[in-house]
């Protein structure tokens, strides 16, 4: 394990309708088990994750809206300062795809940055009853200049790639993160062995 500087700290949001699997995406990052019945006790507010992309180690603060989307409009503070947004729909539920415009509007309204990197994730591709084709997802993503990936939190397909691709794009957009550089000294890198393994999931696409 080598010591390595942390390039930057990024705020990533996961947004989308209830039940599209946002929390599962947040959860499915590096492990093997999948808890179908996610415990709904206190619930997770946010996570700090360390990822290494293209040799750059980056700390992510990842927030999902779980539960809050019931109130329709999230507090502006949720959006403040975010460099990346993962917009999730459920490929088996057309209405979650139809609501994407509303989520983009809300993002436009509250985002404090004009160059936020957006990624569209069509989730639950392991299911049989697909209502939103990959082509539809891709078209929507292109129209709104978003990255696009189809994923299954259950099989882990695409999930790691989604985060890595988003981080890669943010890091390649220096204006987005340079100002936020935190003078923190050095940190050690986490399990790079895992990071390597997951690259293979990109081939699903």
């Amino acid at each position: 394990m080598a010591d390595q500087d942390i390039l930057t700290t990024l705020k990533i949001l996961i947004i989308g309708e209830s039940g599209v699997g946002k929390s599962s995406l947040l959860l499915r990052f590096t492990d093997d088990t999948f808890d179908i019945e996610q415990s709904a006790t206190i619930g997770v507010d946010f996570k700090v994750k360390t990822v290494t992309v293209d040799g750059n180690t980056v700390k992510l603060a990842i927030w999902d809206t779980a539960g809050q989307e019931r109130f329709r409009t999230l507090t502006p503070s949720y959006y403040r300062g975010a460099q990346g947004v993962i917009l999730v729909y459920d490929v088996t539920k057309r209405n979650t795809f139809a609501k994407l415009n509303m989520w983009l509007d809300e993002l436009e309204t509250y985002s404090t940055r004009t160059d936020v990197i957006k990624m569209l994730v069509g989730n639950k591709i392991d299911k049989e009853k697909i209502e939103v084709s990959r082509e539809d997802g891709l078209k929507f993503a292109r129209r709104h200049a978003m990255l696009f990936i189809e994923a299954s939190a259950k099989t882990r397909d695409g999930v790691q790639c989604a985060f890595e691709e988003l981080v890669q794009k943010i890091v390649q957009t220096p204006g987005l993160w340079e100002m936020d550089h935190r003078p923190q000294g050095t940190f050690s890198v986490t399990d790079q062995r895992n990071d390597q393994d997951y690259c293979s999931y990109c081939s699903v696409l």
Binding site: I6, T9, T30, I42, G43, V44, D45, F46, K47, V48, K49, T50, K59, A61, R182, Q184, F187, S188, T190
Partner: peptide, 9 residues
């Protein structure tokens, strides 16, 4: 941000 990986409830 000193944590490598952690979740906050």
């Amino acid at each position: 941000f000193t944590f490598d990986n952690i979740g906050f409830s």
